[in-house]
Design a protein around this nucleic acid. Structure first.
Length: 790
RNA sequence: GCGAGGAUGGCGAAAUUGGUAGACGCACCAGCCUUAGGAGCUGGCGGUUAACACCUUGGGGGUUCGAGUCCCCCUCCUCGCACCA
């Protein structure tokens, strides 16, 4: 369609409310944002972390993240890709349930209301979201497949019910994953976490530790995120060494000649066997005391406590008898629950040794060579580690072992608001997984969903649901009453989006092959370990089962920064939370979006200042006015033309780098040049700018694009191309430095030689007055600067 | 303690990766236009100075013709992890 000669009559001032409503309606009517899932030729999956639909409504932090993703997605679309940008709701979980309990509304009533409000707010934000494929984790058609994922892992032998010490939150009255315990406190409510011994369902994520670590090298992720995952997986290579019947784990086998005692964790099974009669009472008392200690004080105490068992074991390297102690500074969960203590070379052992006046024997010098270490004396630490383990291994006293900090993932929650774990307990058949054809195990609507102290889910109180025929033998049996961790819901949702609508399978194989893995993923770094690690794990397992043909779900991941307000963190209690609705009402979604992206680098976040948005609004107003006033004809201005092409290049380079703030600055700069003085812009100067601004301010761009005479969406137009020829000038400004200080600027030919440049520079009195002697050195940086040294 | 990332005008921030520090915007100042303006337009805006100049990217040293950028030492801030042997 040929553009009209003049923009149609848009004398009216720019009214964002009107423009935005018009275009949101059009997009919905025309299906502009609906991806062609089946037939897309160049599929591009642009994913953002889905929000928890809180009762408070959309947070500006959500809007910031989504806008950042949306700009990238819209830009990719204008590069000719078939972009799929889905969004759903992570609506199960303790957070929703606690809130529901607090306000006395059932979550099943509250959540749909919250979702409706979120949807309204998200739509106002002008996101290119394909709402035809949205989802909520609370929908039985979704969690049916969450249960299916559980069953696949179960089938693969990666799900176990284990009794053990678990983190119990006394306020939320449920078990927490290790990842949800922060400094010994519940991540959600901040209560001190207690230890309880319960039977729980675990996913064997630790058996994937090496792959989870190794694959990180292949991923295009923010380096900070990868580092956080590496630390969390916590690989350490060492050896298990036998001190008679006690097996210890160490990464410092080279220090074995300095081992002066052995320490067992209080819960270690060999404690009894190593306790002599005379020490029995003291050891028992210490164990009891240690068991009562909460995790917080245990993890922060510098004063180490412990007690001798009275028994001794043989140091396999020296043959010496050394005493056995117990202390809670040794953790049962890590390594073998026993260590060889080398006070001279381990700070914790030293603290302990000082407390009990145990000997300290130095065996490694500052330059990392061994002393007093028998045949290994004089070796380097590096060589000795291997040599000592090899020598002990020859006598069956040691073997090299790699340990990981990563623990198995406890997915049981003794709560109501989650997908029931699809397991039935039968007196005859034992543990029976619910057959896939019987899914979903629907979460019943119950009024009294309040958890109690029993460690048993509220669902157990409902016999009509709890009692169920055994799927295998038909005899009455009992359901598992725990629900699964919310993080399981979000560990596979990206597989679901493209297949939403097909309720026969969790994800359609053909569609999945076409659209996954996710091309680009944007989200918060608070999920750097939890959600991203679990998603990678589930994906790997499904891949191993041949259900998908990739083992990493997110090819590219970028973490966005955080928004603060007027220099302070936003919080409900401070009352300084930015409500997107208010700003959109006043300034329009386009200005709000653009401002959010302008206030700082996307990956770092920024400071939201109420007055700052006016500058962005002014820019959009001027864009509107420029299109309105533009003329078809006019003298071509070489400078403006050059500026335009520089801007096209800059914006095109900045968007893929998520450097949105500088892209916007470049467009503003161009706008300033465009309207310099009384200048009236030419159509050819403003039209490409409308395209450049489209990912940021989509409604306004669509409106202006239409005003310029186009009948199809600006997002199906081709991104402007810059002409490199225009960007190289024949005559350039050369900066002249004398002894490192700028003394002048000269206009010269681009490819000028240094001799000629020097003579022109010296003709400038501002330069020559500093050149008092014959220059000793001349440095010419072509096209940039001339440095004269005297 | 370990790991990662920071520190640039009154403020948010830029800086083609070693080449004019402070782009762009906010705030502020002046002018124009207005009955008026918390509107619009134009210009100014790191510090010292009458000027020439000089100083200036948390502090101190170094490399270089040239350092916000590279190297060494130090201070402070933010975020992870934390008795993981």
């Amino acid at each position: 369609m040929e553009p009209a000669d003049r923009p149609s009559e848009i004398v009216a001032p720019y009214d964002p409310g009107q423009v935005e409503t018009k275009w949101r309606t059009r997009w919905a009517e025309r299906g502009t944002n609906v991806a062609d899932i089946a037939d897309a030729r160049r599929p591009y999956y642009a994913l953002m972390m889905f929000p928890y639909p809180s009762a408070e409504g959309l947070h500006v932090g959500n809007m910031f993240a989504f806008t950042g993703n949306d700009i990238f997605a819209r830009f990719q679309r204008m590069q000719g890709l078939d972009v799929f940008e889905p969004l759903g709701y992570d609506a199960f979980g303790i957070h929703s349930e606690n809130y529901a309990l607090k306000v006395g509304v059932h979550p099943a009533e509250m959540i749909p209301r919250n979702i409706a409000n979120f949807r309204r707010q998200l739509e106002r934000g002008g996101l290119m979201v394909d709402w035809s494929r949205s989802l909520s984790t609370t929908d039985p058609e979704y969690y049916r497949w969450t249960q299916w994922v559980f069953l696949q892992l179960y089938k693969k032998g990666l799900v176990q019910k284990k009794a053990g010490a678990v983190n119990w939150c006394p306020t939320d009255k449920t078990v927490l994953a290790n990842e949800q315990v922060i400094n010994g406190e519940c991540e959600r409510c901040g209560s001190k976490v207690e230890q309880r011994f319960l039977e729980q369902w675990y996913f064997a994520i630790s058996s994937y530790a090496e792959r989870l670590l190794h694959n990180l090298d292949t991923l295009d992720w923010s380096e900070t995120t990868k580092t956080a995952q590496r630390n969390w997986i916590g690989k350490s290579e060492g050896a298990e060494i036998w001190f008679d019947g006690i097996k210890v784990f160490t990464t410092r086998a080279d220090t074995i000649y300095g081992a002066t005692y052995v320490v067992l964790a209080p819960e270690h099974p060999l404690v009894d066997a190593h306790t002599t009669e005379s020490q029995r009472a003291a050891v028992e008392e210490y164990r009891a005391r240690a068991a009562r200690r909460d995790l917080v004080s245990r993890k922060t105490t510098k004063d180490k406590t412990g007690v001798a068992t009275g028994s001794t074991v043989t140091n396999p390297a020296t043959g010496e008898k050394i005493p056995v102690w117990i202390s809670d500074y040794v953790l049962m969960e890590y390594g073998t629950g026993a260590i060889m203590a080398v006070p001279a070379h381990d700070e914790r052992d030293l603290e302990f040794a000082h407390g009990f006046e145990l000997p300290v024997k130095k065996v490694v010098l500052e330059d990392e060579t061994l002393i007093d270490s028998g045949e290994f004396t004089g070796m380097s630490v590096h060589d000795a580690k291997r040599a000592i383990v090899a020598s002990l291994a020859a006598r069956n006293k040691a073997e090299p072992v790699t340990n990981y900090r990563l623990h198995d993932w406890c997915i049981s929650r003794q709560r109501y608001w989650g997908p029931p774990i699809p397991i039935v307990y039968c007196d005859d058949c034992g543990v029976v997984p619910v057959p896939e054809k019987d899914l979903p195990v629907v979460l019943p609507f119950i009024e009294d969903f309040k958890p109690d102290d029993s460690g048993i889910s509220p669902l157990a109180r409902h016999d009509e649901w709890y009692r169920v025929p055994c799927p295998t033998c038909g005899k009455m049996a009992r359901r598992e009453t725990d629900v699964s961790d919310t993080f399981l819901d979000s560990a596979w949702y990206f597989l679901r989006y493209p297949s939403v609508g097909n309720n026969d399978v969790p994800f359609d194989p053909t569609i999945t092959k076409k659209w996954l893995p996710v091309d680009s993923y944007i989200g918060g770094n608070e999920h750097a370990v939890l959600h991203l690690l679990y998603s990678r794990f589930v994906t790997m397992v499904l891949s191993d089962m041949g259900l998908i043909d990739f083992e990493e779900p997110f090819t590219k991941f970028r973490a966005h920064g955080l928004i603060i307000r007027e220099g302070a963190k936003m919080s409900k209690s401070k009352g300084n939370v930015v409500n997107p609705d208010d700003y959109i009402d006043t300034w329009g979604a386009d200005a709000f979006r653009t401002y959010l992206m302008f206030l700082g680098p996307f990956e770092e976040g920024g400071d939201f200042r109420d007055k700052g948005i006016s500058g962005v609004k002014r820019f959009l107003d001027r864009l509107w006015a420029s299109v309105r006033d533009s003329v078809q004809d006019g003298a071509p201005d070489v400078e403006v033309q050059r500026k335009l092409h520089a801007t096209i290049r800059k914006v095109g380079e900045d968007i893929p780098r998520l450097s949105y703030n500088t892209a916007i600055a470049a467009m503003m700069e161009y706008m300033n040049a465009l309207r310099k003085g009384d200048r009236v812009a030419r159509r050819s100067e403003v039209e490409p700018l409308v395209q450049l601004v489209a990912p940021f301010a989509p409604h306004l761009a669509e409106e202006l694009w239409e005003q310029l005479g186009h009948t199809t969406t600006v997002f199906e137009s081709t991104w402007p191309v810059f002409d490199p020829e225009l960007l190289t000038q024949d005559e350039i400004e050369l900066v002249v430095q004398v002894n490192g200080k700028v003394r002048g600027k000269i206009r010269v030919a681009r490819d000028i030689g240094s001799d000629e440049a020097l003579s022109i520079a010296l003709a400038d009195p501002g330069v020559s007055k500093f050149v008092t002697e014959k220059p000793t050195k001349i440095v010419l940086v072509p096209g940039r600067l001339l440095s004269i040294v005297v």
